[in-house]
């Protein structure tokens, strides 16, 4: 299993080289998948989008964020800036020198926005699935979700409800999330920033595709993120909550391949 030291932490990653095909536009395009927070890992991309995207000729990098999957799990060090620094060091360690397409799910998309703002020359485009840039609005929403989740996971009877409603697998995931939130400062730290101002968000000039569920975390204002970004486009799935990646991965893969084709470096 491939591992690197990134900012001193053992980091699990997977590379999938793009298939060699006849289409010259595909040369030298790299997608970096950034998963979400809690019990998520590189698997949610690797077992859905990564193989077909690589088959379309695009190089794929997936990795486990610090504290997730099989990467190292420090007790603290979970501010957004830590995740952004990790991504930068990972790309350096893998000697990726051309601009990449960052594809983030949920919190992973927030990392992508922050990285694109901090390192504009290294980012060709951002595809953010059910994600927002790290503004104070996002921080307040995230802190609320994390506080509610932590409270919910602290009540034993809720695990019975989770199993009855979603199945045994989700009960195991909830146990895992509870253990990780208890063992680390992740839930307290993630929404601490530093946050971006509206002006800093507007300074992200690369193309951005915001993929949303109509009933997901941005249901209150589906147009807010794209309106704040000069290069922003949105795609909204009807009848869909936050789990866009899991439940709509086939449609997302089509959107993504077409997006990279449109916004490749040529």
């Amino acid at each position: 299993m491939p591992e690197l030291k990134v900012n001193g932490l053992r980091t699990n990653y997977q590379l999938l080289p793009g298939a060699v095909g006849p289409d010259p536009w595909r040369a030298n395009e790299t997608v970096v998948f950034i998963h979400g927070m809690g019990t998520d890992s590189l698997a949610s991309f690797y077992l859905t989008l990564a193989p077909p995207v690589a088959a379309a000729g695009i190089d794929v990098i997936s990795y486990d964020l610090r504290g997730h999957g099989r990467s190292e799990r420090p007790v603290s060090g979970y501010a957004l800036a830590d995740f952004v620094a990790d991504l930068d060091e990972l790309l350096c360690a893998l000697t990726v020198t051309h601009p990449v397409h960052l594809v983030g799910n949920s919190f992973g998309g927030t990392i992508a926005y922050a990285y694109a703002a901090a390192h504009p020359h290294r980012v060709r485009s951002v595809v953010a699935i059910e994600s927002e840039p790290p503004t104070e609005v996002w921080a307040a929403k995230m802190a609320g979700i994390l506080a509610a989740t932590t409270r919910m996971l602290g009540v034993e009877e809720n695990y019975e409800w989770i199993e009855a409603t979603f199945g045994a697998h989700h009960r195991r995931l909830a146990r895992l999330a509870a253990a990780r939130f208890t063992a680390t400062t992740m839930a307290d730290e993630v929404a601490t920033g530093p946050m971006m101002t509206a002006r800093e968000v507007a300074a992200i000039t690369c193309p951005v595709l915001s993929i949303l569920g109509r009933h997901g975390y941005q249901a209150d204002d589906l147009g807010a993120v794209t309106a704040s970004l000069p290069g922003g486009e949105a795609f909204v799935f009807d009848d869909q909550g936050h789990s866009v990646l899991v439940e709509r991965h086939r449609a997302v893969r089509g959107l993504l391949v077409e997006w990279v084709r449109r916004h490749g470096g040529g």
Binding site: T39, S41, S44, L47, L49, A50, P52, G69, L176
Partner: peptide, 27 residues
Amino acid sequence: ESVDLVTLGGLLADRYGPRVNLAEHLA
């Protein structure tokens, strides 16, 4: 965890070569 399935896919490819592509199958 699912991430271990990804690692198993890597071990299978090491053992049998690229024609055994578990991730592609599971996608």
